[in-house]
Amino acid sequence: MRMTAYLIALKGILKREFLRFIHQRTRFLSALVRPLLWLVVFAAGFRAALGVSIIPPYETYITYETYILPGLCCMILLFNGMQSSLSMVYDREMGSMKVLLMSPLPRAWLLFCKLIAIALLSLAQVYAFIGLGFLVNVEPPLTGLLTVLPALVLTALMLGAIGLFLSSRIRQLENFAGVMNFVIFPMFFMSSALYPLWKMRESSEWLYWICSLNPFTHAVELVRFALYTELNLEALLVTTGTTLVFTVLALLGFNSEQAVRKS
């Protein structure tokens, strides 16, 4: 097929995801309310209990709200990635996945388009959230808003790929609750999103190691450093590697997709 056909498909998928997103205004609101609750309510309550010492990339003492901001940005990306997984399962159940699978374009390309759409929608929400953060005096450096963009894109792609991989494994919408309990919550809480890992090490060595191996931890650190115009190479490598692995796994799952369920 012509090259323009690929670009038209990309534009079509982006447009559809965008239109679906604006039809689900509550999804946008909940995507912002969830991390805002953490930033305003949870952080206020736990500020004293969870004091943070000077750790890179911070050069001075920081408030707890400042510490959790990158983690909450990644939380938005995490929930969006899983939301995309849910929407793919929904599409399969409702039959609209067949429309996608009947396209003459390669499935790898269609999957890539989906990933880009998920990432772009997530990014818009993250920047809206950072904007709201300024209202409650959580103010990252302005140049950081630019340097964090590639880190956010990579993280969004990683979590989108994990979501698409899961959607190829989840057969029914009802099973999505399991994703919440077995994927989203462990991934988020066993990371450096809410507390630095040395704090975790103080309470449990094995928990510390689990958190260190969690790719979400590395994504959070990548975003944290990028927000302060620094590069965390280890985090970049782990996040890139995880993105590639899950993209391949999602592609394999998507390629063997049989959109019609047993009649």
Partner: peptide, 14 residues
């Protein structure tokens, strides 16, 4: 129209 445009895009139609 949006449904048709989505299908068209998947088939490379502007």
């Amino acid at each position: 129209l949006q449904n048709l445009e989505y299908h068209g895009a998947l088939h490379g139609l502007s």
